[in-house]
Simulated scan of single mutants.
Amino acid sequence: MPRAFTPKVVTANALLEGDVIYQTATGWSRDLAEAEVLTDEADADLRLIDAAQQVDAVVGAYLADVDASGPTPKPTHFREDFRATGPSNYAHGKQEAQANV
C-alpha cells in the first residue's frame, strides 16, 4: 500500500547566489514561513515540474516534507531544518538574523 501524501514545499537553490529558496504562490522566497504548503499530490507534482523548468533562476528543485500543523511550515527532516537555518561555517546570511543564533 502506498504511503499517504504528507504536506510538502518545493525547495531549491538560487542559481546565482546558491541560497536555499522556497516556492511561494507568486515566486520564490528565502524564508520557509512564506513557502506555499502543498497538500495535494498532483498539485505538488505540477509545482515541482514548474520549478524544474525555471533553469535560469533555480537549481536542484525537489519536494520537502513539512509539518503544517502550526502557523508556519516546519521541516520534518534534519536536512531541511539545517538548510532552513543557513550556512554553518560562520555567521552570515540567515544566521546573522537574531532568531537563528
Rank of each mutant, 00 (worst) to 15 (best):
M1N: 08
M1H: 07
P2A: 13
T6G: 07
T6S: 09
P7M: 09
K8R: 15
K8Y: 01
T11K: 01
A12I: 01
A14L: 02
L16Q: 05
L16I: 09
E17N: 11
E17I: 13
D19I: 00
V20M: 09
V20N: 03
V20L: 03
V20C: 06
I21D: 00
I21W: 02
T24V: 08
A25C: 05
A25L: 14
W28F: 10
S29I: 04
D31A: 11
D31M: 10
D31R: 08
D31W: 09
D31K: 07
L32I: 15
A33K: 09
E36D: 15
V37W: 05
L38F: 09
T39H: 08
D40T: 00
E41W: 03
A42W: 04
D43N: 11
A44V: 09
D45T: 07
R47Y: 05
L48D: 01
A51W: 04
A52P: 03
Q53S: 14
V55P: 04
D56Y: 05
A57G: 05
V59I: 12
G60W: 03
G60M: 14
Y62Q: 04
A64E: 04
D65P: 14
V66N: 07
D67C: 13
D67T: 04
A68D: 12
A68C: 09
A68W: 05
A68E: 06
S69K: 05
G70K: 07
G70C: 06
G70A: 14
T72A: 13
T72Y: 10
K74E: 09
K74L: 14
T76F: 10
F78C: 03
E80T: 03
D81M: 14
D81Q: 13
D81L: 15
T85C: 08
T85S: 08
T85E: 05
P87T: 03
P87V: 06
S88P: 08
A91L: 15
H92I: 11
K94Y: 07
K94T: 12
K94S: 11
Q95A: 11
Q95D: 01
E96S: 10
N100A: 10
V101P: 03
